[in-house]
Design a protein around this nucleic acid. Sequence first.
DNA 1: CCCTACATTGGACAAGGTCTAAGTCAAGGC
DNA 2: GCCTTGACTTAGACCTTGTCCAATGTAGGG
Lengths: 137, 137
Amino acid sequence: MSDLLKRLRERGWRLTAQRRVVAEVLAGDHIHLTADEVHARATERLPEISRATVYNTLGELVSLGELLEVSTDHRATRYDPNARRPHHHLLCDRCGTIRDVHPTGDALSALPESERFGYTVSGVELTYRGICPDCAV
Amino acid sequence: MSDLLKRLRERGWRLTAQRRVVAEVLAGDHIHLTADEVHARATERLPEISRATVYNTLGELVSLGELLEVSTDHRATRYDPNARRPHHHLLCDRCGTIRDVHPTGDALSALPESERFGYTVSGVELTYRGICPDCAV
DNA sequence: CCCTACATTGGACAAGGTCTAAGTCAAGGC
DNA sequence: GCCTTGACTTAGACCTTGTCCAATGTAGGG
């Protein structure tokens, strides 16, 4: 966490209370909050933080490569703090819970040249779908 | 296309002019329209069709398994008529164009038991990202 | 400790999508 | 062929998510 803040400082980030709180709220594994959830949790620690600042900060962290946007459905975008460790997602179709997973193999090389249509392919996202243990009752 | 309408009729779908037009608009390969685009094209053939009906019809086709929702970014959901033929997607990060692709291998079996967290895994989506030839200039 | 460029704020705005109440019509029964 | 009825459609209000802006506040270098 303090690593993150240090890295950002080195890149010229001005360290404000708001930005620190947003970074704190996002720390951890299997964390995939929406912007509004981030705002709600940030408000607990810093009541006067505004929605606009949360959106701004999330956007900055995404462009700095510290945060990943995950859009699993037509609802709110979720933010994934594990941008520095590559991984994929396992999603519960009932409750929407997301887990980080690490499949074997290399999905990128599974796309043959003939299926690339002239695109320069730079990455691949895998989203596994299923029902989580809590919803399986 | 008439196959689709026939299948739906057998499942108790009442066949209206609006539903027929929506189905017609979605026919074809590499078609990934947003709801508003569907509405715009449907309006050309049936000027009085409403937005609500387009949304209703798209939603019904999705639950019937005839249509796939694709949410690649934080923008409008796109609808993919190739739900009956399994495939994945290749997406241009600049202009958002989507192509249907068929990678080799079985991504489902690439997720080991230890990474399933007790979920019943039923499917997997692959989204390749890159730059399309038109944007590569 | 001051200055200033950068950050934050609240509220207006926009896009995508859902809901409702009232009117319309497909299709089965006669 | 016509009636009936419950499913379908409609317009528009409304909700949620996200963006933008002008005014205000403040981190951090000098």
